[in-house]
Design a protein around this nucleic acid. Structure first.
Lengths: 129, 129
DNA sequence: TGCAAATTACGAAACAATTCGTATTTTTGC
DNA sequence: GCAAAAATACGAATTGTTTCGTAATTTGCA
């Protein structure tokens, strides 16, 4: 089980977590490189963010070497579930079906993804039978 | 078509929109009554929020009478879609299937909801053929 | 060794979101 | 009419987020 963070990540923090989830353990420079490609963002800004996230327990780091190496402490799955629940409550009045409907129309899923979703449905339906 | 707001509602704004979507046009007092039941929140806080939301175009109001009547200007559907897109990008790396998976496991859907989702899938799959 | 380069630490400014106290305005009942 | 009650307007404090400049530290190498 991935640990559930105590705090809900802010938007910027989520951007950084995204990088760490995708790349795995990274230096500040590596995270910065990825983010700077998308939008303007100074090196020390990223550094500071990571330091704050360290305090909040969202990342952990190895500072045994010259360049500190940061790792996402909050598991991708856990954070996703947390954000999902939050959005479900606040914006969708708890209706998962409604949310799914919007998710699918917000972004076209591939044939393969649609197939995967069918499988999830099958599994869920099987369980509740 | 419900109008898409220019701005993304903040958390508190979403709470208020939730009330307006559920109850329909409401006075400050009515909104306050609902929110105060959940968490501590002063009357003028709600009032101020609604005034700010008015400026942002998230609500409209009828101030022809003593008590102003507020209505959600941002349609529930539009806001949901917008938030969905946002979350999809930031937390789910664009994978709708992944998001749907979490949505379904975060909150058990009813048989009927599952059926509705299947119908959506059918429709989508039909389109892309 | 000691200087230049690379890195982290720190503080604080800029901005945005939330909250509420007080002032002002409007209505109503006497 | 006028006072009390009820409502809105406004300003500002507080808190949280994001950003970055500058200082301090560490490392490698000439």
């Amino acid at each position: 089980m991935t640990p559930t963070p105590k705090v809900k990540p802010t938007n910027s923090e989520l951007e950084i977590l995204r990088v760490l989830w995708d790349r795995g353990a990274s230096t500040v420079g590596q995270v910065h490189e990825v983010l700077a490609a998308k939008r303007d963002m100074g090196y020390t800004t990223v550094l500071k963010m990571l330091q704050i996230m360290m305090e909040k327990g969202l990342v952990s780091r190895d500072d045994s070497r010259r360049q500190h190496i940061y790792t996402a402490a909050a598991g991708e799955q856990s954070v996703q579930r947390q954000l999902m629940r939050d959005l479900l409550d606040k914006a969708f009045a708890g209706s998962a079906a409604n949310l799914v409907m919007h998710a699918l129309s917000a972004k076209k899923a591939t044939q393969q993804e649609l197939q995967e979703i069918r499988e999830i449905l099958d599994r869920l339906e099987g369980e509740s039978k």
